[in-house]
Design a protein around this nucleic acid. Structure first.
Lengths: 163, 163
DNA sequence: GAGCTGACTTATGGATGCGTAAGTCAGCTC
DNA sequence: GAGCTGACTTACGCATCCATAAGTCAGCTC
C-alpha cells in the first residue's frame, strides 16, 4: 500500500476512465436517455416525450449512444405498419445500471422533493430495495475512508523535470 | 409487484432524482472536480492543474458544488503564508463516491485504453478490489433483469385525459 | 395514388460550457 | 512599502447543448 495519493502530481489522469466515460454519457440528455431505456422505453417518440426533450436532441443522443455501443437499433413491425426501428440496451448499455442506480440513490437521499423519491427499485425475488453499494472482492462492505488508490497497468507516470 | 413500467406514460419524471442530481453535477468538469476531491485535492490551483481545466471553470464549479453542499470551504494556513481556503468534501459530497466508482468501473470495463485502467481502488483492510455492486436489503446480489420499479411516495401520477 | 404516421432532419437562435489571457487583491516577506 | 504568491475575477470568443418550428421521407392503408 504505497501512498499513491501523496504523489498525485507524479501521475496523469489523461486516460482516466471517468473522463472517458463522460465523453460518451457526459450530457444530461444522454443520462436521461439511458434512464428511460432502463425503464423500458424503446421508441424514438417515447424517448422524446417521456424525457421532455426536443427531437433533435433525442436523435443526436440516440445516434451517439448507438455509435458508442450502449444501444442497438432493432427492427420491429407492428401489424398494419411498416418496419421501424427500436433502440434497446446492449450488454455494454445494461452494464451502466450501477451508475444510474448510484445517481438516483444520491438524489433520493440529498435532493428529493418534499413528497420524497418518485420510484424505488426492488429485487424481484424478495421485494427488498435495491441499492448501489461499495464492496471489495473479499465480500466486505467498504465505507468511506476504508479504501485506497492503487496503480493500475494503464497509469501514466509523468517525467520528473528537475529531479 | 404491479407493473409500473407498463403504465409508464401514466406517471411523470418531473421530480426524477437522477435529473435533479444532474442539475448539480451534470457537467463534465463538476464530475472531475469531485473525482479530484476524492483523490485528496483541496486547493484551487491543484484542481485546475490536475484536471487540466481553466481557472474560470474551476472557480465556477467549486462555487456551485460548495453552494450545493458537496464541498465546504475550510480555512487553512501554511507557515509564512496568509490564511487561505481549501475545499473539502462534506458528508453529502462523500456520499457521492458510489457514483464515481460506478462510472470508473464502467469506463475500466468498456473504454479503457490499450494499457488498461490507470488506477484501482482497494480495501485497506484486505487489499481486495473495491467494486460498486447492486444489492438488495436482504443481502442478495441483484443482476440485471432481477429488479423492478415500484412507486415511491413522490411519484407524480398524471391525469388521464380521455379515460 | 393520396393521405397518414412515425421517425427522423434542417434551420435558427438562445444559453451554457469552457478556453486563453489579463487583471485584481490580500497579506506575508524582505 | 515593494514585490511576491495563491486565489480568484473579468473580458472575450468559440463550441456545444438544446429548444422550437418546419420540412422530409418511407411505406402502409384506403
Amino acid at each position: 500500500m504505497s501512498d499513491l495519493l501523496a504523489e498525485r502530481d507524479a501521475w496523469s489522469m489523461a486516460n482516466c476512465s471517468i473522463a472517458r466515460t463522460l465523453e460518451i454519457v457526459g450530457t444530461r440528455t444522454a443520462m436521461l436517455i439511458l434512464r428511460e431505456a432502463f425503464l423500458g422505453t424503446r421508441r424514438f417518440d417515447d424517448f422524446a416525450r417521456r424525457i421532455g426533450i426536443g427531437e433533435p436532441a433525442t436523435a443526436a443522443r440516440l445516434k451517439e449512444l448507438t455509435a458508442a455501443g450502449l444501444l442497438e437499433r432493432v427492427p420491429y413491425r407492428e401489424p398494419g405498419q411498416r418496419t421501424r426501428y427500436a433502440y434497446q440496451l446492449t450488454e455494454k448499455g445494461r452494464d451502466f445500471l450501477p451508475v444510474l442506480t448510484a445517481l438516483r440513490q444520491w438524489g433520493d437521499t440529498w435532493v428529493a422533493g418534499e413528497q420524497g423519491r418518485p420510484v424505488v427499485a426492488r429485487h424481484k425475488q424478495c421485494g427488498g430495495e435495491v441499492r448501489a453499494v461499495l464492496r471489495c472482492e473479499e465480500g466486505h462492505d467498504v465505507p468511506f475512508g476504508e479504501s485506497y488508490i492503487d496503480a493500475g497497468p494503464g497509469l501514466l507516470r509523468l517525467e520528473a523535470d528537475g529531479a
